[in-house]
Amino acid sequence: MRNMHPADELAMIRTDIRRLREREDYLRKGFLSLRLQTQGVDAVATVKIVKNRRLCQHKLPAHLLDDPDLWETQVIRHVHIDEVRHPAAHIPMWADQMATCDLIEPT
């Protein structure tokens, strides 16, 4: 693995996580719809039904929703990553790895 800036590494990790979440979503939907087999070599996927209670805020009277004593502000620190736009063309990560290779073409 090449030495990279921590911001670039975090961006790469988040790209991997996004790809893995998309794959997880595809598999989850396949198990829920019974399109995929649930028995694997090392694991079994089991579909379970879980029930929980939640408050329906939209059904509460307005005087409760407007009461500041019933609300609290939560502050979360979040690290956001933006891709740097270089004036030159973006060089793919694999191109940097190929720079250490010799290219031999048939004559």
Rank of each mutant, 00 (worst) to 15 (best):
R35P: 02
V79C: 09
E105D: 05
D82R: 09
R21P: 02
P106S: 02
W71F: 06
H78N: 15
A43Q: 08
D42C: 08
M98P: 02
P92Y: 05
H5W: 04
V41H: 12
E72A: 09
R85G: 04
V44L: 14
L60A: 00
Y26Q: 06
L103P: 02
Q39A: 11
L70K: 10
M98S: 09
K29Y: 01
C56P: 00
L65Y: 00
V41A: 13
K59V: 00
E105M: 10
P87Y: 04
N52D: 10
Q57C: 11
I49F: 10
H90D: 13
I13P: 02
R2M: 07
Q37N: 09
Q37R: 08
R54T: 10
V75W: 07
A99N: 10
L27Q: 03
E105L: 12
P68E: 08
L103K: 15
A89Q: 12
E9D: 09
P92L: 09
I17G: 02
K29G: 07
P106R: 05
L34F: 09
H86T: 12
F31I: 14
R18T: 13
M1S: 15
R2Q: 13
V47K: 02
N52T: 09
A62P: 02
T38D: 13
P87V: 04
V79I: 14
A43M: 05
D66I: 02
P92A: 04
A43F: 11
Q74E: 10
Y26N: 04
K59I: 00
G40N: 09
N3G: 02
L55W: 04
R85P: 06
K59G: 00
Y26F: 11
M4W: 03
A95V: 10
M98A: 15
H63G: 00
E9I: 12
R54C: 13
T73Q: 13
L65T: 03
T100R: 11
E72D: 14
L32T: 03
V84W: 02
H86S: 15
P6R: 07
D102H: 07
L10S: 01
H90M: 09
A43G: 01
P87A: 08
V47C: 01
T46H: 11
L10H: 05
L70M: 11
A11R: 04
P87Q: 07
I76Y: 13
A62S: 05
M12D: 05
L20Q: 07
S33G: 06
M98G: 05
T100A: 11
K29A: 08
D96V: 11
H5E: 15
R23M: 11
R23D: 04
R77D: 13
T100K: 11
C101D: 09
P6E: 07
Q57P: 00
E72T: 12
R19H: 07
K48S: 03
T46L: 06
G40Y: 06
K29H: 08
M98L: 15
E105W: 06
R53G: 06
T15M: 09
L55K: 00
L64N: 00
A89N: 12
I76D: 14
K51S: 14
V75K: 11
Y26G: 01
A45D: 09
P68V: 07
A43H: 13
Q57I: 06
H5Y: 11
H5S: 10
K29S: 10
I81D: 01
L70I: 01
N52P: 01
R21M: 06
R21F: 04
L27N: 00
L60R: 00
V47W: 01
M12N: 03
D66K: 12
A11I: 03
